[in-house]
C-alpha cells in the first residue's frame, strides 16, 4: 500500500522565550525540530507499511532547511521524502497549506492513506489534516487514538472524543490524524541513518503542483495574523510567609470566607 505522512518543521516551543515588551518570540538559538505530534503519524504509517507492505512517503512544506525533518523521517525508516518549497508558498495559512499538500498527494498518485499529526506545536490549529481531506474529497478520521485494522479497502479507527471512543469504519483512501496514544515512535535505525546521510528530497514548486499564484501563499490564505502579544498578565497579590500553621489560618480564612471561625 502507499502511505503518505505530512509533517512540519517547528521551533521547539519548550525552548522559546518571550520578549514581553514587544510581544514577540525570541528565536535566538531555538532549535527547529520535527513536530513531535507528527512522529506518531510517522510511526503509525511505518507500522502499517511493515505489516501490510508498501511505501511511506513523507511530505513537508517549508524553506529549504525544512529538509532536515525529511531526513529525520528517512532515518526512522521512511522510503521517500518530498519538500514543497517555493517563495510562492510564503505566508500560507492552513487553507493554502492544505491545498498544496493535497496537490502533492495527488501528484504522488494512488495513495491509500495520508497520516497527519494531531496538530503542530507552534500553531496548534489541528486544521491541516481535515483541510487536506477536504481538498482531496477523501473521508477523514481525526483524533485517532488507535488504528485497529486496515486492508486495501478500509480502515477501522478508534477516535478519542471528550466522553468516550468512537469506533469508525472508513473507506480508503482517507486522511487520519494520529494522537500520541496510538503508539510509541521508534528510535532511528542505523541503516536509516546511513540512508539519511545521502538522502536528497524531491523538490516540488507551486508550479510543479499546478497551483496558480492566487491559490498559494498569502494570496491563497484567507486568514492573516495582524498582531501578536504576550498573554495578558494577571498581577500577583499578597505573598504570605510564616509557619505552616500560620499559613493554614490565613488560607482557611480566605477559602472558607463567611464560615464561622471557631
Amino acid at each position: 500500500m502507499k502511505f503518505v505522512v505530512a509533517v512540519k518543521q517547528v521551533p521547539d516551543t519548550a525552548e522559546v522565550r518571550i520578549d514581553h515588551e514587544k510581544g514577540t518570540l525570541i528565536r535566538d538559538g531555538v532549535p527547529s525540530i520535527l513536530n513531535p505530534f507528527d512522529t506518531y503519524a510517522l510511526e503509525e504509517a511505518l507500522r502499517w507499511r511493515d505489516s501490510l507492505g508498501g511505501t511511506v512517503t513523507v511530505i513537508t512544506m517549508g524553506p529549504p532547511q525544512a529538509e532536515a525533518v525529511l531526513t529525520e523521517a528517512i532515518s526512522m525508516g521512511a522510503d521517500e521524502g518530498i519538500l514543497l518549497t517555493d517563495r510562492a508558498f510564503a505566508g500560507s495559512d492552513t487553507r493554502a497549506t492544505s491545498q498544496a499538500i493535497a496537490e502533492a498527494v495527488r501528484k504522488v498518485g494512488a495513495v491509500d492513506v495520508v497520516f497527519c499529526g494531531k496538530q503542530a506545536i507552534d500553531g496548534d490549529t489541528a486544521q491541516t489534516g481535515p483541510g487536506v481531506a477536504a481538498s482531496l474529497d477523501w473521508p477523514q478520521v481525526t483524533f485517532v487514538g488507535r488504528v485497529r485494522e486496515m486492508t486495501e479497502e478500509h480502515v477501522i479507527c478508534e477516535r478519542y472524543v471528550e466522553n468516550g471512543v468512537q469506533v469508525l469504519d472508513t473507506r480508503l483512501p482517507a486522511v487520519l490524524t494520529i494522537l500520541k496514544d496510538a503508539n510509541t515512535p521508534r528510535v532511528p535505525s542505523l541503516r536509516g541513518k546511513m540512508k539519511a546521510r545521502t538522502f536528497k528530497p524531491v523538490l516540488w514548486s507551486a508550479a510543479d503542483l499546478g497551483l496558480s499564484p492566487e491559490e498559494t501563499g498569502l494570496s491563497g490564505s484567507p486568514t492573516r495574523v495582524v498582531t501578536t502579544a504576550t498573554p495578558e498578565a494577571r498581577h500577583g497579590g499578597e505573598i504570605h510567609r510564616g509557619t505552616p500553621e500560620e499559613l493554614a489560618v490565613i488560607m482557611a480564612d480566605l477559602l472558607l470566607g463567611k464560615e464561622a471561625r471557631s
Binding site: T13, I18, G23, L25, I121, T227, T228, P231
Partner: peptide
Amino acid sequence: FGGNIMAT
C-alpha cells in the same frame, strides 16, 4: 507557540 504568544 504553546501559549507563549497570543496571535490576533
